[in-house]
Design a protein around this nucleic acid. Structure first.
Lengths: 150, 150
DNA sequence: ATACATGCAAACATTTTGCTTTGGC
DNA sequence: GCCAAAGCAAAATGTTTGCATGTAT
């Protein structure tokens, strides 16, 4: 498990880019580190600011283009947090990404559970005829801290 | 049960608004009919156009404000179809709304199955401490027609 | 040297607001 | 008549693109 986890690192992603004839730059390395260490979805603005805190100063468009590129390569994806902008996180093809969002403080937690929708996807394939299914699943509720405060 | 199903109609929603001191207008009635009969999520633009096709000509802002109002009253909600704008549908509190989106032609189907996430929500409450859970679930795949065409 | 990556600014799309007029009650 | 709703226009927000310059390979 830890070996699998370690194979999907910023360096590994950079190497994958190089394999496609794309380039490794210091700015890209920082952005990937930021995403990797955050462990939760980040907005383009947040990525930019966190990179800045590490001494890189990527333009917003640069962050946008890198995330768009990673998305196209299936190395990252957008997450719908029902806010006014998009959030992104790295996407290890071996992992499953569902989220819980606190409706009170906005905290986001990535849920680490086996996907509970296998049977449902089979049902959909059979009854609705849709194939090649993926899904996007977000839970919204009140986190323990906010529950206590209220 | 059929009474229950029929209780969530455009007229019923309008009456609910009146109960809150808000007003029933011909334009609102048309928009609600459009949403009710579509039976799938619509963008603000689509709502506006479909209303126009019925002789009403609501301003975009009018549609926006009505949908925002309905959202606040929990009579409608936004759906994330992973597109550049928001989609809305009426929300009968007695029903469950999950969706399948065709990644090829964009067709959207509302899935009519019992929610498969009850056990998961219990698990989340227990292991992550989040309460008052709701969720948003969309499936993406290829519809039968697009599969045939390919 | 050759592309790809970046920064900057501008264009775009969508959402949201302010204000005046209209119209439901 | 009072106050909410609608229409219109402008502002605000977030996303995307064009182009000149910088830089990895």
């Amino acid at each position: 498990m830890s070996e699998t986890a370690l194979s999907f690192t910023p360096e590994a992603i950079l190497n994958r880019l190089r394999g496609d004839g794309l380039r490794i730059t210091p700015g890209r390395r920082v952005i990937l580190e930021v995403l990797f260490e955050a462990g939760k979805p980040l907005s383009l603005e947040e990525i930019k600011d966190l990179a800045a805190a590490r001494g890189s100063r990527p333009d917003y468009a640069t962050v946008f283009r890198l995330m768009t590129l990673l998305e196209r390569l299936h190395l990252a994806h957008k997450v719908n947090l029902q806010r006014s902008c998009s959030y992104y996180e790295l996407h290890d093809p071996k992992k499953h990404y569902d989220h819980i969002v606190c409706t009170s403080c906005g905290k986001v937690v990535v849920i680490d559970i086996p996907c509970p929708l296998g049977a449902t996807e089979a049902h959909i394939a059979e009854h609705y005829g849709f194939g090649d299914l993926t899904h996007s699943l977000e839970f919204f509720g009140r986190c323990p801290e906010c529950a206590k405060a209220a």
